[in-house]
């Protein structure tokens, strides 16, 4: 495998069968022969509408689902924190309400990946550092809070802190800002960009919002109905895309721009 590749997805398909009581429901093809490589240190944006299979792709990489056909190969990585030479992949979910257990304090939540991985001996300072790095300061005032007392943006920061604490090689962010206010979402995107600059971590950013993807990504893949319809660098996608669907996405993102067109003369 190429040295610069972190993950290589090869002709992966995934079909969901729905079992009915008397007859089988029609199959849903979530992914249809998808091939994609994730390069080391890049931010790869995956854009698609709901039902396009973008979340399924993330789940396959995370190992939460098994591919129906095709395979996903990981690069060998020299990383002390990884046991089997496979890169560590972490995740930030869309819904910061559902992804943080409401029975745990912020400290327990952030410490969890460490506790799972090396049971007892981990440095408590790492929790403090992780929370500081996501801007939850003063740290002491947050450590013993429960997630339901935090705002949506703060919860998403906790989610980022706990994803970062094991120093993963890659983070899959599945619609991390779609449930947040626009201005708070920008802060989360900036935080992710800072993380990438500081640690060189690879991001896979799954979203339905082309503006957000264009803001953060180096390369962008556009998905529709389980297929990748267009892949290219940010510049390529924004300035000369070929696929109709990408064009319609760009149009919907730009008609809101007030200084070029007003609504009526669209």
């Amino acid at each position: 495998m190429d040295n610069s590749c972190l993950i290589k997805i090869d002709n992966v398909s995934k079909v969901f069968k729905r079992k009915g009581m008397f007859r089988n429901e029609p199959e849903v093809k979530a992914l249809d022969n998808v091939s994609l490589t994730v390069k080391k240190g890049e931010v790869l944006g995956i854009i698609g509408e709901s039902g396009s299979g973008k979340t399924t792709l993330g789940k396959l990489i995370l190992g939460l689902l098994k591919p129906g056909s095709g395979n996903i190969s990981f690069a060998d990585i020299d990383n002390s924190s990884s046991q089997n030479g496979k890169p560590i992949v972490q995740v930030i979910f869309q819904d910061p309400y559902d992804s943080l257990s409401h029975m745990m304090t912020v400290e327990q939540l952030v410490a969890e990946p460490c506790i799972i991985q090396n049971r007892k001996n981990f440095d408590r300072n790492r929790i403090v550092l992780a929370l500081e790095s996501v801007g939850l300061t003063p740290v002491e005032s947050f450590l013993h809070k429960y997630p339901h007392t935090l705002s949506g943006g703060q919860r998403q920061r906790v989610a980022i802190a706990r994803a970062m604490i094991t120093e993963p090689d890659m983070i899959i962010a599945d619609e991390p800002i779609s449930m947040l206010d626009a201005s708070i979402g920008v802060d989360i995107l900036n935080l992710m960009l800072d993380m990438k600059e500081r640690t060189g971590i690879t991001f896979m950013f799954i979203t339905h919002d082309i503006a957000a993807a264009a803001y953060i990504s180096d390369n962008i893949a556009v998905m529709k109905e389980g297929k990748i319809v267009e892949y290219g660098s940010r510049e390529q996608i924004i300035s000369d895309c070929c696929h109709e669907y990408t064009k319609s996405l760009l149009l919907s993102a730009s008609t809101g721009t007030f200084n070029n067109t007003s609504f009526d003369d669209k």
Partner: peptide, 8 residues
């Protein structure tokens, strides 16, 4: 949160 724990 269960998915996250499994991934970790």
């Amino acid at each position: 949160h269960v998915d996250f724990a499994r991934i970790s």
